[in-house]
Structures are given as C-alpha cells and as structure tokens.
C-alpha cells in the first residue's frame, strides 16, 4: 500500500514538472521571439497578411486559451510544421529519434557493463595500483568533453589504427534493414542479416563509447564509494565472521546495497547523455535527433527545436520516474522518507 502511494506521488510530481516544462517552452516560443506570424511570413509580408495569419493561428486570443490549444495539439501529436522539411515536426522526430535512442541505449549498456565492474574492482583493490589507475581514468573520463574523446577515438582507432569506421550508422552504399523498431542492430538481427548487423555494430562502437565516458566515470565513482561505505557495516563483519567466502561477500553482500545509489546516478547521467549526444552526433555524422536539432537551430526552425527539447525533457523525466519507482522498490526506507515529509 505504502509502495503504491510512493509510485503515485512520484508520478504526480513528474506530471507537475512536465506541465511546468510545457509552460516554459510555450512561453519561450510565444513571448520571446516577438511575433510568430511575422516570423513565419518573413520580413516582406504586408501588415494585412500578418494580421490574417495571426487570427488564423489564434495569436489574438488570450495567452491561456493559446496555451490550452497548444497542449491539446501536442497531445494529438501535432507539433506544428517544420520550416525546413515543411512537414509535421512529429514525422521528423520519428525519423530521427531511433538513431539517437539506439546510440543512447548502447551507451547506457557500456556505462552499466563497464562502469559497475570497474567500480567494484576499484573498491576491492583499494589503494593498489589498479585502484589508482582506475581513479585516474575516472577523473579523465568525467572532465574531458565528449567531443574531444570522440575526436581522439577517431584519430586513434579510425585514422591511426584503421580498425573502425568514423562516420555514419552504416557503410556507404549499404541499405538499412526493413524498419521495425528503427534500431539498426535490432532490425538487422530480426532479419537475420548478420553482415548488416556487424556493419551497424562497428559503426556504433566509437560514438557510443565516446558518449559513455562521462557517465561511466560517475558510475565507477559511485559504485566504488558506496561499496566502501558498506564494507565497514556490522552485517558485513557478521557475514565475514561466519566464514562466507570473500568473493561472495564482495559480490553478493557488498555490491547489492551499493547498487541503489549507482542506479540513481545512472538515471541522472541520462540527461547529460542527451546533451552530449548533440556533440557526439556532430563529430561522427550520426543522423540522429541532435543533428536534426542543430540543423533546426542554425536554420531558426522554432517548431522543430521545440519538438526536440520537449522530447528530450520528457525522456529525461520518464527515466527519472522509472528510477525513482525502482529505487523505492529496492530500498523500502525511501518510500517511508517520502511519506514522512
């Protein structure tokens, strides 16, 4: 029962933030740039034409009415027309989102699959050269801008060693698989087209690894510190004195409680992943949403840009909500703390 309350409270919170986000974006789009009708028509339109479009767009109505209309349009999937592609922004987003989503999912895999073991290793080998080496890597990974990591990877693994391709999702001339999910790795596997799968895989390796560095560093840090935190607790002493093998103590009794803060950090790095994806997609000519967003930005395509920001904000909120709910499930104290407040 308590748990359900926790879930409802968190969902309600996320919804409030989402509404707030839509208000902020609405205000940015309606108030700041001056007159959207004038912007849409360009500087050479007559006063008459602008007035006509204004009433057509409902811009002469009160702001509250405009906001309600704006939100109901969004809910019906109408993001407005893109100035560049001249179609509904939703279609553009659907075309570009899978590439970004695939990149981010693979990146998150690296963060989890490499970050947690490295953090655990660092904790287990505390104050040895392994720990120091991992710490040095962690610091470098956290503070180095993603696009510099990307360029370093390109120079080293692409141009220098010639192991991996440096741009795009597929080799030039290779046709993408039939679209089911939009994830090339998944779609090519579904089609059992293994050469295509391999091509997609070697293309995503460098960008996803470059994008994963910052989050991986933070995951290593938090895993290490929370494992060391647990190490001195009484229950670990008890388990040890029972003669439980050290390996089991490490990976069952220490890693499990350490996982809760780790999960929270992984959820939080999700936001920076979307931000950094803007830069990484640029470095690797990855045809994703960030690249779409940058093009929209340079062309002053307001509707497209708002679509990108909304999708990013929503994705971030949903992930945080899922993390919150999962954490409440893993750590009962959190639900109670929320209730007491």
């Amino acid at each position: 029962m308590r748990y359900l309350t926790h879930v409802f409270r968190r969902t309600g919170n996320a919804l409030i933030v989402l509404v707030g986000l839509s208000i902020v974006i609405f205000l940015i789009s309606r108030v700041l740039p001056g007159d959207p009708a004038r912007m849409a028509l360009g500087p050479y339109a007559t006063e008459e034409q602008v007035r006509h479009l204004r009433s057509e767009m409902g811009l002469d109505r009160p702001l509250v009415v405009q906001y309600v209309r704006y939100v109901s349009n969004l809910l019906r999937g109408d993001f407005g027309k893109s100035l560049v592609s001249e179609r509904n922004v939703r279609l553009d987003l659907e075309a570009h989102l899978p590439a970004t989503a695939e990149l981010i999912v693979v990146t998150t895999l690296w963060i989890v699959l490499l970050g947690i073991p490295l953090g655990a290793l660092s904790a287990v080998k505390k104050d040895t050269w392994i720990d120091h080496a991992i710490k040095a890597f962690t610091f470098t990974a956290v503070v180095t801008p993603g696009f510099i990591v990307g360029i370093a990877f390109q120079l080293l693994f692409g141009y220098g060693l010639d192991w991996l391709p440096v741009t795009g999702r597929l080799s030039p001339g290779v046709l993408p698989p039939e679209r089911v999910t939009g994830f090339l790795l998944v779609d090519s596997a579904l089609a059992r087209d293994w050469p295509l799968f391999r091509d997609a895989l070697i293309h995503i390796l460098l960008p996803s690894l470059a994008l994963s560095f910052a989050g991986m560093g933070q995951t290593i840090r938090i895993t290490r510190s929370s494992m060391l935190d647990v190490e001195n607790r009484d229950f670990i002493q008890v388990v040890r004195s029972y003669g439980v093998p050290e390996r089991l103590v490490m990976f069952k009794y220490m890693l499990k409680p350490a996982f809760i803060p780790t999960l929270q950090v992984i959820g939080l790095t999700f936001a920076s992943l979307f931000g950094n994806a803007f830069l990484i997609e640029n470095v690797f000519s990855w045809p994703g949403m960030a690249k779409y967003g940058v093009t929209a930005l340079l062309k002053k395509d307001l509707n497209a840009l708002i679509g990108v920001v909304l999708v990013i904000g929503t994705a971030f909120l949903v992930v945080n909500l899922v993390v919150d709910v999962l954490m409440g499930f893993l750590d009962p104290r959190l639900r109670l703390k929320g209730a007491a407040r």
């Binding site: 940015i28 740039p33 931000g275 830069l279 967003g293 930005l297 920001v309």
Partner: peptide, 15 residues
C-alpha cells in the same frame, strides 16, 4: 530537468 546544453541551444535559437 533539461540538459543544460539543450536549454542553451533553445535560448540561442530563439534570441
């Protein structure tokens, strides 16, 4: 709740 870079992009785009 917004990535700082995306927000900076949005503001730069509008202004």
């Amino acid at each position: 709740s917004l990535p700082a870079l995306a927000m900076a992009l949005a503001v730069s785009a509008v202004l």
